[in-house]
Nucleic acid binder design. Sequence first.
RNA 1: GGCGCCGUACCCAAGUGGUAAGGGGGAGGUCUGCAAAACCUUUAUUCACCGGUUCGAUUCCGGUCGGCGCCUCCA
Length: 471
Amino acid sequence: MGLMLYNTLTRTNEPFEPIVPGKVGMYCCGPTVYNYAHIGNLRTYVFEDLLRRSLEALGYDVRHVMNVTDVGHLTDDADEGEDKMEKSAREMKRSVWDIAAYFTEAFFDDTRKLNVIPPTIVCRATDHIPQMIDLIKRLEQRGYTYVAGGNVYFDISRFDEYGRLALLDRQELKAGARIEVDRNKRNPHDFVLWFTRGKFEHQSMMWDSPWGRGYPGWHLECSAMSLHYLGEQFDIHCGGVDHIPVHHTNEIAQSEAATGRKWVNYWVHAEFLLMDSDKMSKSAGGFVTLGTLEDEGYEPLDYRYFCLGGHYRTQLQFSFESLNAARNARRNLNDRVVALQATLGGQPAPAADWDGPYAKAFLRHISDDLNVSRGVAELWGVVKDGELEARDKLAQIAAMDTVLGLRLLEQAMAAVQVDADVERLIEERGRARAGRDFARADRIRDMLGEQGIVLEDGPDGTKWKKVSRRV
RNA sequence: GGCGCCGUACCCAAGUGGUAAGGGGGAGGUCUGCAAAACCUUUAUUCACCGGUUCGAUUCCGGUCGGCGCCUCCA
């Protein structure tokens, strides 16, 4: 069954056809490492992970490239703003390099906790300055640049297709609506490819270039690195919707001007997470991180499950009430999968089976522009099915979870690891109950409860299971 | 001002030109020393509002009201 993907370039759902059969080149805009990622940022990375896992489930060999922006990102783009890295470094009294290393690590800690598969290649902007300089040279040779006030600019008037992705030609742009127009620019939408020294004081990350010592413009790195790692044409480029009008628009201009050909086939954008009917903003401060959630007693995968509840192209309303619902749902799900695994009596979890009816339906929904909430409904369907054998259920669950990434089987296997001491205590409690020594029986149950072992007395005797800690 | 998106039960959230997935929460029941769990049942005659097209619209079109995003920091 073919994958349909919504392509921002055409604003329609299109059948996905890779350039090379069976292989997918995918570039995702990564974090700017001057602060922790907030959960809104993280939603996008969970979405990208979902896309990657879906492609793999459909049999594609995915080359997933993600950048880490560790330089040259201004608080505004008007040649006036402060460099975010420098600002953060000053505030934390550390070097920009330390800041970058620290927050890069923090970012990957978060994504690992969210069970996001690491990209095939992670590339740092500062490791690819030569590629960026080469790209500017190519643009210069083809006549797409001009130098003004010490900076090298991209001249959008030379690129006819400029703004197609964002439908900019259909907009009456209010240039300078929010910031001062850079007087060096011939067109308000021209953007800087290379900044030279002297623009800002105390700029510590600088490199030599044909245009003077300085540093690259923000958009340049994504073009330079994606061209470097994925070639002059590749399949998918992802990012948040906020990147459509400027960042991705400029990336397209740079890349296609340099190569003279179409660059990316499918542009796929994730919508925002909203906080109190407002988008969550990193720069505005007061944002919620994964650490905040953990401090509140949530597990990272609760947040992943929460993200899976909505479609990636619709704004998702965050609230602790909703996150609670997600946590409860995931606990129920985990408990049920543990119960299924327990019936296998210590045998390993069955291998993923995509041929079952639920798994098939799941894949059909996922293929429909990643309709994951519908997919999750199929997961519940198989879990609650009254006819299927536990083994069949688990095999289909295993298949679906390769896409959902909820670690369902791993947790189930861990939970059913029988601890001899626990078994012994249960037997002891059984004897106490038989002797109607309920005080002693309850004491044992409480003790086990503290270890996350829950007992359930039923007609067939006492069952027990390990559950996630109830906070 | 321009461009784009959205408005579904108590909450989150899918979806379709032919009569509303799923989860959470709530309610009732079975079971039980108690509890928990499990299981069963139940929870939108209705999809912001008003018109239009249609045999039929929540789904298409127009308008109104409300919300959100973008228009050079943002995932």
